[in-house]
């Protein structure tokens, strides 16, 4: 899992792309638990960072990236290029984190 290159550039600096393997993707849908929602509601009075949500989204994005990398490894790639992230709210209180990129083989 560690020797795969993940970048949002279209090339890997100093390496040549040998083969394209198509798009790879990973997603996850997460919701916060009620306790966190209540805490966030209280935080809404004074404003500022909602740390619980920040952590949740960081973890979720990490998970989506891991799934994307898993798919790339399955296809036999050693790099994922042009990675993009996107977030969408499915319903109130749940978000989908999505990561996608192009799997390639570089020399």
């Amino acid at each position: 899992m560690t020797d795969i290159i993940v970048t949002n550039l279209e090339t890997v600096p100093g390496r040549t792309i040998i083969r394209h393997l198509g798009i790879v993707q990973g997603n996850t849908v997460r919701a916060k638990h009620v306790g966190r929602d209540i805490m966030a509601g209280l935080k809404n009075i004074v404003g500022g960072e909602l740390r619980g949500y920040t952590e949740l989204l960081t973890d979720a994005r990490e998970e989506a990236t891991q799934r994307m990398m898993g798919e790339a490894i399955e296809k036999g790639a050693n790099a994922v290029l042009n990675v993009r992230f996107s977030t969408s709210s499915i319903t109130a209180g749940a978000s989908e984190l999505y990561a996608y990129g192009t799997a390639v083989v570089v020399e």
Binding site: A40, N44, R61
Partner: peptide
């Protein structure tokens, strides 16, 4: 070259 990211969730008062 490594992917780096930073995120933050903020709310208004």
């Amino acid at each position: 070259g490594a992917l780096v990211s930073g995120n933050v969730v903020v709310a208004v008062d």
